[in-house]
Design a binder for these strands. Sequence first.
DNA 1: GAATCGCCCCAAACCGCTTTGGATACCGCA
DNA 2: TGCGGTATCCAAAGCGGTTTGGGGCGATTC
Lengths: 341, 341
Amino acid sequence: MNLKELASRLGLSPTTVSRALNGYPEVNEATRERVMAAAKRHNYHPNTRAIRLATGRAMAVGHVIPVATRHEIVNPVFADFIAGAGETYSRNDYDMVLSVVPDDQEEATYRGMKSKGNVDGVIVHAPKLNDPRIALLHDVGLPFVVHGRATGATLPYSWLDVNNRRAFQRAAEFLLDLGHTRIALVNGLEFMDFAIRRRTGYEAALSARGIAPDPALMSSDEMTEIAGHRAARRMLALPDRPTAFLVASMISGMGVRRALEEAGLQMGRDISVIIHDDDLSYMKNGDDVPIFTATRSSVRDAGRMAAEMLLDLIANPGPDQQRLLEAELIMGQSTGPCPRP
Amino acid sequence: MNLKELASRLGLSPTTVSRALNGYPEVNEATRERVMAAAKRHNYHPNTRAIRLATGRAMAVGHVIPVATRHEIVNPVFADFIAGAGETYSRNDYDMVLSVVPDDQEEATYRGMKSKGNVDGVIVHAPKLNDPRIALLHDVGLPFVVHGRATGATLPYSWLDVNNRRAFQRAAEFLLDLGHTRIALVNGLEFMDFAIRRRTGYEAALSARGIAPDPALMSSDEMTEIAGHRAARRMLALPDRPTAFLVASMISGMGVRRALEEAGLQMGRDISVIIHDDDLSYMKNGDDVPIFTATRSSVRDAGRMAAEMLLDLIANPGPDQQRLLEAELIMGQSTGPCPRP
DNA sequence: GAATCGCCCCAAACCGCTTTGGATACCGCA
DNA sequence: TGCGGTATCCAAAGCGGTTTGGGGCGATTC
């Protein structure tokens, strides 16, 4: 069942039927209803491929996932972001196309998307320091929204980010207020922009209290259980071990917790831990009472909002949009006063 | 730069240029090279939208992710499967379109995909007992491959699955061989087909040794850290507590481990644990030496293979294909002889 | 009563490619 | 010399929609 056939069944021209279905004014209201009814009755859905060619719009947005030989972006945070963005796309009848490509083909992929015209815009994931993708996408001329920010980018661009600096600053201050001075940072990889911001927030809080950040208490690694465990274990073995941990993710936090348990330390009493909680749907920080005290910001909501920004940008190409989200500090059972005042 | 323009620059017809680029024989080899060179020089990429309309193929496959009010399919396993499938699609110039839809709109989504024609086939995720999607997709007439199997389905269909039953049977036998008799099963939700198969494998192993499965040692819940912890804690509090655990996933396993540590039990010595390891890229079961003894099967590889099966099915619609993968039993540090012989 | 105006509708062009059905030129061969 | 065959290319008709540029007709205006 296509437009032409539907039109002939109705004794109308394809033009009129198309207009009736798309809400154009130059069609009698009675006719429109007749068309609508017939479309429903015959289960007519316009062919997406034809619409796309005729309108010149892809009605789709791309997410490029570089699959690296070295570091994986395919991480649990990504899954939830995608889920959030996908909800927005579905609501707006857009398709989400995911391209999983070797990281050395990322540039070619973006250029190809533009010239092949299979997407109207893209979301940029996991920006790095001086991320080259921003200049690239400007050059290519594809609307885009960055999830996060790229320190060092000279060109303006649209982004949505969590205030990572402030979140970690507040978390550190909270620990300081509890009397902790030996506060460890178990950070993500520091070529990732968000990790840099978190470190600066942490350092700022310490410095403001006259505490010099101790490199021995700072680690930067992948946000896995293993890496979290490894970092915490090393730090706990120090002669002047930390009394508190600031940890980059829920998963890292589980590794840290394992190290604490191995060391016979009780979380919340002997030692404090604050994690950053992306509020992942399948990895909740506790049921009702949070396990970890946390800086929380739903990455799923971020996905929803970033997608909305992008669709808006595609619909009316205007000035760049920015949106900075604040994380909330959630009180859990993993923090308490410093046992060694 | 489009085909027509490229053709006129070359002094050729669009027909010839199209044929030259697509490798058809009815074009002079010298001409073909001239065309190829010009295409490269002018950075010509055929418009995807036009190709799709002209050929009637979408060059895309769909993955429908129902986002439930009740249970989430957006889980970490899903992310890795997608990554694997995406690699296959990229290699074959197919797009992957993800549809995140409320679960009550799943049927409408599949039907819409067919009539709107934006995908050539779909992958079905997380099949349930008597999954209605199989009959639906038969009805709709969209090629599909199921990741897993749906017990109770009457129609034939293509699938790729891990031999979950045998994996859990072997794991249970391994524990039995170590002298364990009180073996607990921390399973996933049992409306999921794979969870049912795992349970039957577990039960079969016990029954074969004359041990009646004890309902108190069997739990079925979401595969989260929290749920794993909850289940293990409950079982450890039993008067006749288990000496070994068979656990559905890496994440559940982390919850189980937490419960063990709380109970002061050392994994591998006081108590044994075997998990199922999907070999997730960001949640490895240890670096070189596995943390957990595990039944391992890469879900990423599964994604790659399922996608290949689907593309094959689309290219040459033939008989259904099935593929059953065996999990390997990986020796880790979490198992040992039963301390209470 | 003629000119003007809206309201509805339609024919046809167009989006950029593929594919069918020739057309032309040149070849070898009878 | 003439004819079938082959190699090479092209014009045009699609794919299934959207959109432009009217056209017919009854109502309104002068």
